[in-house]
């Protein structure tokens, strides 16, 4: 009898520590590539050559639901390199600290955001300054990053109330793993005006195929 109780307890504990997991994969139809930005050089006495790189459109796919929050979130980074944000699109969970290192050789940046989800202005800081300027993103929403010095620079931080998200690749393909079983809404954030969604029923150990076509 004691042995049976022990086995049941062990099974229960194992069930709690290793919940049933599923995954979702699929394809998001991405919008066409936007024109690359043109750097404004009108009043710069010294300018360097070269053109700015194109950022291909990407989407963020995330699982919407009620999930426990973690107090130990990893710190993320959005760097400034070659007069652009790297990465240009970063999804983070609410409460994540994001650092903004300046990786330019000898160029100031002044990163700021006026987005309702997070308003801040880091001011001008040198590449070698420590600590690296950072912000904690504690409200869900879209945060548009800009530079007060370089008008063309744009970056996005999508703050999500879920730990389950992934950025698609350039072709729009995604795979979300380690998802808990249950009934959820899977969302694909395309841009500030477009978010597609799909209800899903995740079963333990299963892999769902969900696509987000441009015209459902």
């Amino acid at each position: 009898m004691r042995c049976l109780v022990f086995c049941l307890c062990l099974l229960s504990a194992l069930t709690r520590s290793a919940p049933a997991q599923g995954s979702v994969e699929g394809q998001v139809d991405l919008p066409r590539t936007k024109s690359a930005p043109v750097m404004t050089k009108r009043y710069e006495i010294v300018t360097t050559g070269g053109v700015l790189g194109t950022n291909p459109p990407l989407a963020v796919v995330y699982l919407e639901g009620s999930f426990p929050t973690s107090s130990n979130l990893p710190t993320k980074q959005v760097a400034q390199k070659d007069l652009a944000f790297v990465p240009a699109l970063l999804p983070v969970q609410v409460g994540t600290k994001v650092e903004f290192p300046n990786l330019e050789k000898d160029t100031y940046h002044n990163i700021f955001s006026y987005s309702p989800a997070k308003r801040f202005d880091l001011g001008r800081y040198r590449p070698d300054e420590k600590p690296v300027p950072s912000q904690i993103f504690d409200v869900a929403g879209l945060v548009t990053l800009r530079c007060d010095i370089h008008e063309h620079m744009r970056g996005l931080i999508l703050v999500l109330a879920t730990p389950h998200f992934v950025v698609t690749d350039d072709s729009g393909h995604f795979r979300l793993k380690g998802l808990p079983a249950g009934h959820y809404t899977l969302k694909a954030w395309i841009d500030s005006r477009t978010t597609r969604e799909h209800p899903i029923d995740l079963k333990s150990g299963s892999t769902l195929q969900v696509d987000f076509p441009a015209t459902p």
């Binding site: 936007k34 024109s35 930005p37 043109v38 053109v51 309702p116 548009t144 008008e151």
Partner: peptide, 29 residues
């Protein structure tokens, strides 16, 4: 307002043009 802000952001994007695989780029602002 957020909508007006979003509108101006999209105006910004709509006024950028490129041709010849990005070799020629122009922006009206």
């Amino acid at each position: 307002s957020a909508k007006a802000q979003d509108f101006l952001d999209h105006v910004d994007e709509a006024l950028s043009f490129s041709a010849l695989n990005g070799e020629v780029r122009a922006r009206v602002s």
